[in-house]
Nucleic acid binder design. Structure first.
Length: 550
RNA sequence: GCACCCGUAGCUCAAUUGGAUAGAGCGGCAGCCUACGGAGCUGUAGGUUGGGGGUUCGACUCCCUCCGGGUGCACCA
């Protein structure tokens, strides 16, 4: 549609020798009285051509040569919009296109196979995943799906650190809990991890090792505790993620950056470029030379690197591994670290423009109209596992994706559990199940069979406004996926699918599908099947199920 | 104090990335089941887009400023 118009309008511009003076874009007007497609090219042209936009539009339209089989009306409106209306046949005929390859409808190739990495979750194995991690998992995973559908070559990655101070504390906490099983008087470290999950790990440790570790050297015992706790926690993390349908391709360990010497390489490179220097026994990154407010320490005077250095080294690896687009999904609490990392990337000679950082805001759980209070320190937070237990993984994913990532998300537990039209995820799934039910019914009546070819359907029998509106919406699916992918905004897909469900329900109430007029019945069944296709493909991208019955 | 995010209908949020009369869901009010799923549909009320300036043919969107909420700030991660 856009392609066709682009061709025709640029031909008209060429004959008026206005070509290249302004960027030509088409979009779907918000209000359907303005037609199916509109362009503001005349208004953009007005300035450089020094002419009134409306008379410019008049000139362009005069030179326009469009096929009346496709375009039924061209008009100029408002300050100089050129509006196009397409014939109904133009739309309905494309149902056949959807049904030709249902599994791939919505896929595009704008990504051109670009090698892309999406990093998300990346929680260190020091405890169970929180609901915040859940939001990140849903967002990251869906962005990855969107990019795949848009033709990118995507790797899903999880970055973690099992070496630092946090892990030391995990080991000490586990060890203390373990020893308390034999002697309750053993003290618990002051900054230790308070959560009950540590007790559970200690219990398991006792089951496996008995009291054999009580007599062990402390360092040896701690290293055993660390390994044991890390393994247990990582298994738990992977298990919860799997419950949400999230599976990473690569787990990248921060420690490998040290053992392989990459950290040292980065320091050398930065020094060689005169972007790192020594002061007060520490190594500083000259971030001021890269446009930031102040220089930052990358190696402390104790010889220990700060978090910035491995983060920069990791991003260097991302580039070295050949990724052409790097998407980092982080929580809002990591905002401050981003400029430093990007500066580091730039300092090493890579293009920071290739790194897209998606920041998501926090999640508040609401129950019975009141905020569920959570404190990580007191370890009384709701874990992602518990949330999935309570409302199910479809609702969890959908709710996490419903809002724009930059918006704070209020998660209404009562609503998520409610099995009614109020609940947006059920509303969507219900539409899919309802179509499945109609198709079953039609097959039972012998109106059609799934083996039928949809090649000879008389689509022009579909004339009702609800039918046409539904078709038009379905045809927007590929560009919607594309737009969500390139803007990294999954929530727009949830909005779109909700609209599709609404358009379908409206169609359903206005038109009976399985009727004696067999040709019309078949055309409507084809429309149902096309709708089911879009809903199913959309749900697949969102990572939620599209049930045949509910 | 500095940086980033947010502020839109009673509530939770959208708004085609600068387009035409700012839209949904929930809640409120009024309706719709003798045929394919009422987990649905129809109608209605509800707004100075936090305030004020600016850029533009055009601003919820971009710039400045103020107000309010959140997050971050270190040789912690």
């Amino acid at each position: 549609m856009k392609k066709y118009l682009t061709e025709k309008v640029s031909a008209a511009l060429r004959s008026l020798s206005y070509e290249g003076l302004a960027k030509m874009t088409f979009e779907k007007p918000k209000d359907k009285v303005y037609g199916d497609m509109t362009t503001n090219v005349a208004m953009l042209l007005a300035k450089s051509a020094k002419k009134n936009p409306r008379s410019l539009a008049q000139e362009i339209v005069g030179k326009l040569d469009v096929d009346p089989k496709y375009v039924s009306k061209v008009e100029i409106a408002g300050p100089g919009f050129i509006n196009f209306r397409f014939t109904e046949e133009f739309f309905t005929a494309q149902i056949g296109f959807i049904l030709q390859n249902p599994a791939t409808f919505g896929r595009t190739d704008i990504g051109g196979g670009k090698k892309t990495q999406v990093e998300y979750v990346s929680a260190n194995p020091t405890g169970p995943l929180s609901v915040g991690h859940g939001r990140q998992a849903a967002i990251g995973d869906t962005i990855a799906n969107l990019l795949i559908w848009a033709g990118y070559d995507v790797t899903r990655e999880y970055y973690y650190n099992n070496a630092g101070r946090q892990m030391r504390m995990l080991a000490e906490s586990t060890y203390a809990r373990y020893r308390q099983l034999f002697d309750p008087a053993i003290p618990f470290p002051e900054d230790g991890y308070q959560g009950d999950y540590i007790r559970e790990i200690a219990d398991d440790l006792k089951k496996e090792r008995g009291d054999s570790m009580v007599s062990l050297q402390q360092e040896e015992a701690l290293s055993t505790c660390k390994e044991f706790a890390e393994r247990a926690l990582f298994e738990a993390i992977k298990k919860v993620l799997a419950r949400m349908g999230v599976v990473h391709d690569v787990f990248f360990n921060e420690d490998s950056l040290y053992s392989s010497g990459k950290i040292q390489e980065v320091i050398q490179e930065l020094r060689a470029k005169d972007l790192a220097y020594d002061l007060d026994g520490a190594v500083w990154l000259k971030t001021t030379a890269l446009g930031l407010g102040q220089d930052r320490v990358i190696v402390k005077s104790t010889g220990e690197p700060t978090y910035r250095l491995p983060d920069i080294a990791y991003h260097r690896e991302k580039f070295k591994r050949g990724f052409d687009l790097i998407v980092d999904v982080f929580g809002a609490d990591h905002i401050a670290t981003i400029p430093d990392v990007l500066a580091g990337v730039k300092a090493l000679g890579y293009d920071p423009e290739k790194v897209k950082v998606v920041i998501h805001q926090f999640v508040t759980l609401m129950r019975d109209g009141e905020q569920v209070k959570m404190s990580k320190r007191l370890a009384n937070f709701v874990t992602l596992d518990e949330l999935i237990d309570e409302v199910g993984s479809d609702a969890v994913r959908f709710f996490f994706l419903m809002r724009s990532t930059s918006s704070h998300l209020e998660f209404d537990l009562n609503l998520a559990k409610e099995q009614s039209e109020k609940n947006p995820v059920y509303y969507l799934q219900y539409a899919h199940a309802r179509i499945a039910s109609i198709l079953r019914f039609a097959e039972g009546q012998g109106t059609f069979s799934m083996e039928d070819s949809f090649a000879n359907i008389e689509y022009n029998l579909l004339k009702g406004s609800a039918e046409i509106a539904l078709v038009k919406l379905l045809l927007e699916f590929p560009e919607t996926v594309e737009m969500c992918a390139i803007s990294f905004e999954p929530h727009r897909l949830t909005t779109y699918l909700h609209d599709v469900a609404t358009a379908f329900h409206k169609f359903y109430h206005e038109h009976r599908v399985v009727i004696p007029e067999i040709e019309l019945a078949k055309a409507r069944l084809a429309l149902c099947l096309a709708t089911k296709t879009v809903l199913a493909n959309g749900c697949k991208i969102l990572g939620i199920s599209a049930p045949e019955r509910m």
